[in-house]
């Protein structure tokens, strides 16, 4: 029975790699969107703060699966209409790329809120001191705001990462060969041979996610210690 898991072992490994890559790239994208979103939301200029508020409110009010299907299929539909209009062959959107973009866009809204809170937690005096030193906005951000902000943002980042890691499972619904999809394919593959190993494969998939969660917990624990040096 366990030999069967090993038979699908290399595929499960590839699925795991796809899951981790997807999660890391989505994290990177949402991190950047979050920083920009937080800066926009805190801006005194309404032309920046208003769209950012609309973005975070809309995204966080709609389920991630709905957004994923909405964006993926609408964009594919639009692309098909364009290629049809120009009499070109259809272009299939890559599920991995789509997954990164959609997850990045969704969790960018959550990161915007995390970073907004963290920006506000840095004492104003620090920014005034930086201004008094004649630092440019970029320098202030790089040298003063970012290093101090990270301490307040880390619990939120850790939380968002765990959520993104689990949300990647949804991308299998739009066709990515991640851990979940590999497990489901393995089930179909064994059922056609008359065996019912659904429980075993799904349990393996669950354990892989659990392992990833444990490793990330440990990693963030170390990061948290590093950014809290000088406090407590």
């Amino acid at each position: 029975m366990t030999s069967l898991v090993f038979a699908y072992g290399s595929q499960l490994w590839e699925g795991t790699v796809a899951t981790v890559q997807l999660a890391l790239l989505s994290l990177g994208l949402s991190f950047v969107i979050g920083l920009a979103g937080a800066a926009a939301k805190l801006s005194a200029n309404r032309w920046y703060s208003m769209p950012a508020t609309v973005y975070t409110t809309l995204i966080r009010g709609v389920p991630d699966l709905v957004l994923m299907l909405l964006l993926f299929y609408s964009f594919q539909d639009l692309l098909n209409r364009i290629t049809d209009a120009f009499k070109q062959s259809q272009i299939e959107i890559d599920p991995f790329l789509a997954g990164v973009c959609v997850l990045g866009l969704i969790y960018g809204a959550y990161f915007t809120e995390t970073f907004r809170g963290a920006f506000l937690a840095v004492p104003r005096g620090q920014l005034e001191a930086a201004a008094a030193f004649g630092m440019t906005q970029g320098q202030t951000f790089r040298r003063i705001l970012f290093p101090q902000m990270m301490r307040f943002a880390l619990p939120g980042i850790s939380n968002n990462w765990q959520v993104i890691l689990k949300a990647t499972a949804l991308v299998s619904i739009i066709g990515l060969r991640d851990v979940v999809r590999v497990a489901q394919d393995a089930i179909t593959g064994t059922v056609s041979k008359g065996a019912y190993y659904a429980f075993l494969f799904l349990l393996t998939a669950a354990l892989i996610y659990l392992l990833l969660a444990i490793v990330s917990d440990w990693f963030f624990h170390i990061l948290m210690k590093r950014y809290s040096v000088g406090f407590r």
């Binding site: 689990k166 979940v180 998939a205 669950a206």
Partner: peptide, 15 residues
């Protein structure tokens, strides 16, 4: 909390 709800649902429903 460490595993996706989608996997839990599949495990309970199909598994």
């Amino acid at each position: 909390r460490g595993t996706p709800l989608y996997v839990q649902l599949l495990l309970i429903y199909t598994g």
